[in-house]
Amino acid sequence: MKKFLMILIILVTITTVTTIVYMSVFGKETLRVLKVSTTTSLYVTGLLEKLAEEFRKEYPNVVIQFIAVGTGRALEIASKGDVDMVFVHAPSLEHKYINRGTLVDGHIIAYNYFVIVGPKDDPAGIKGLNNPVKALRRIYNAGVSGMTLFISRGDNSGTHIRELALWRKAGLNPIGQKWYIESGTGMSKTLMIANERKAYTLSDIGTYLKLKGEGILGRLEVLVDKGEGLINIYSAYIVNPEKYKVNYELAKLFLEFVLSRKGQKIINEYGRKLFGRPLFYSAYGKENELKELWNTLLEH
């Protein structure tokens, strides 16, 4: 057994040294850490990193750690108490977690629109419609007659929940049909699949523009971007400090920064130069109007 004891001691020493090296190189222990779970669209577009960067100019000893997942998982992670704050965009889901007492201090921070994108030749003939429900009906008919496909996120994300709500509004249930494909992945991959398969899908405008800008969605274009039910409202919440161990003060600071004139300006300006149009609109000054719209999105 002496041999193993020796090896054990050596290995433990090495491990300890490595860990110490690790901590000295990357250690964030001396800094104050804010953990945020977020919907992918806000992160993948780079908006949140940009906000964090500006925030850190004012509070350099704070580190904001983003965990980018779908809205469904972001809220689930919050309800387990693993993050301090969430950024999400699925009012009906948010509502559930508010009622359960998981979330407090909710604020609408930004909005933009969902868009229905599809192949340029538009086999369902939806281009220019200003009613997404009508557009989905046409896609349904085209799908049933074998002319096209629809790709759904199928991952309980904000976009997925909205898509299902729109189908319900149209009085249709495409789930299980051959032309209705559930990708089970994030927005980017769903868009890429739609591009490959020449299919329709519902996307947030931010992610679509980001990918379009990278030049990888050559066969897709925005076909419907107007109409009731397409508004996409992003909200931020702090995880209830009475139920979980939460870095409330820090979360509050960041939330206030995001809602401040400066933060809202960053949101409004973000990507405008790069993509020719804004990815997100600030909620500043439109809070009441947005809140009403938010409430209408609860009813299903």
Binding site: V44, G46, Q65, I67, G186, K189, M192, K210, E214
Partner: peptide, 24 residues
């Protein structure tokens, strides 16, 4: 790990994210 920038982002999670960002 959560793929946190500068903290838990490693090769594989970074690759997954860059694909998600469309930055091939």
């Amino acid at each position: 790990g959560g793929n946190i920038k500068g903290y838990t982002r490693v090769f594989t999670t970074a690759i997954a994210l860059e694909i998600e960002k469309g930055e091939f």
